[in-house]
Design a binder for these strands. Structure first.
Length: 130
RNA sequence: CGAGUCGUGCGGGCGGUCGCGGCGGGGCCCCUUCGGGGAAACCGUCGAGGAACGUCCGGGCUCCACAGGGCAGGGUGGUGGGUAACACCCACCCGGGGUGACCCGCGGGAAAGUGCCACAGAAAACAGACCGCCGGGGGCCUCACCGCCCCCGGUAAGGGUGAAACGGUGGUGUAAGAGACCACCAGCGCCCAGGGUGACCUGGGCGGCUCGGUAAACCCCACCCGGAGCAAGGUCAAAAGGGGCGGCCGUCCCGGAAGGGACGGCGGCCCUGCGCGGAUGUUCGAGGGUGGCCCGCCCGAGUCCGCGGGUGGACCGCACGAGGCCGGUGGCGACAUCGGUCCCAGAUGGAUGACCGCCUCCCGGCGGGCCGCGAGGCCCGCCGGAGACAGAACCCGGCGUACAGCGCGACUCGUCUG
């Protein structure tokens, strides 16, 4: 799973990633990625000591609507995605914000199918022209 | 052995790799006003459900309110208990169903009043003459009786309709009949005796002879009910502001277009707070509370209008509780009480898991073996599939609903054997 410091925790972070980031859609999910910015102000709430030299970690959040399934299904999708993202966290630029939105078919997909779609989407966002 | 009734337990297991959250330890290291603060490895420990669900009841807890009375509104509805409380639970009563174990009942009042009872049927709520039956009169036919038709009257025993036709059976009686009268039975009301805390039961007597259903229709009766909810509420920091909802313009991007998006700018409306100005008001009282309204009571110095101005968290509550397990005692039981023992999720874009293998269990296919005349049954191996319903968010007690499978224990009926 993802440690807390690698998760999106605020409404503004979600809004920033979804509205200002690039987007790549797949049948099962949509990935929004906002590349790491050189730490704009306003981060007064993050630890001041960490702001010195260490690069801020990449963070990810998940949006799974009720169209995907009931609470049990939604939780399972989120957990699978979190595990998948954890293994791919190193590939993301530091400080970037990522939001993964699960589409209705994600509820019926297995682990492998989710991984394939996520990899394809990430490849398009990272490998493409920056 | 077969069929069934009730209660109750569990709701996959083991292992491997990689992870997440809380608490306790641990301290590489970082900051420091030298008081302290933060914090990585690593170790230990705990980490979803029987329904966590629906949010339908009842409480705890928190804040607001708390002279009283009336109206309105909501709820409950056999009796007696249990409980913090309940619409829940237990026991019993009554009614209904079942051979039985048992099950079902929104189970106060229909002689307080109003309303409604479809269809069928002649007639359906101070009942009702269609056919039939009986009496009288007239006509036809005939010697006459009988018969047929019409009119008047009597009749609820018979036919037919219906969920239901104004008690049932037998008799007396009569032109034919009828509780018109009689006996027994059923029902209703009243009285008495006995039993029970009580609902009620048992027995006896009397009466008029009987007088539907529906109250999850209005209504009546008895009893109960302040309001909001953890986004309750509180502490700290920060700022004079904070929150919500529309519109227009410019540049750029996507698109064939319609349209959509990003960034920047302008301006509007609503709620609340602050500043400024104005109006009004302070025992001749504005306004507010008493969550609906009225009377009354209480608080009481503000209230209303206009203008101005632009993005925010942390912590507590928050987990030791009407608590779980074991045993004793009291009670038919729900439950109460005593002793011992245990600590058992606390997230906040929301942890409690992801992946893999084996086993177990169910289903299907293939192959082999055994039993049987046979339909078929059993065992072994391989392959494939399936393993439900469902995720805590302040906490408890219930109810209701969903659910693949696997058990366990009582009891009933039937059959066979002894």
């Amino acid at each position: 799973m993802l440690p807390t410091e690698n998760r999106l925790r605020r409404r503004e972070d979600f809004a920033a990633a979804v509205r200002r980031g690039r987007r790549a859609g797949r049948p099962l999910l949509v990935v929004h990625l906002r590349r790491g910015s050189p730490r704009p102000d306003s981060e007064g709430r993050t630890d001041p000591h960490a702001a010195e030299g260490v690069a801020p970690p990449a963070r990810a959040g998940f949006v799974v609507s009720k169209a995907v399934g009931n609470a049990v299904v939604r939780n399972r999708v989120k957990r699978r995605l979190r595990h998948l993202v954890r293994d791919r966290l190193d590939a993301l630029p530091p400080g970037s914000l990522m939001v993964i939105r699960a589409l209705p078919d994600a509820g019926g997909a297995d682990h492998e199918e989710l991984a394939r779609d996520l990899d394809t989407a990430l490849q398009r966002l990272l490998g493409g022209p920056s």
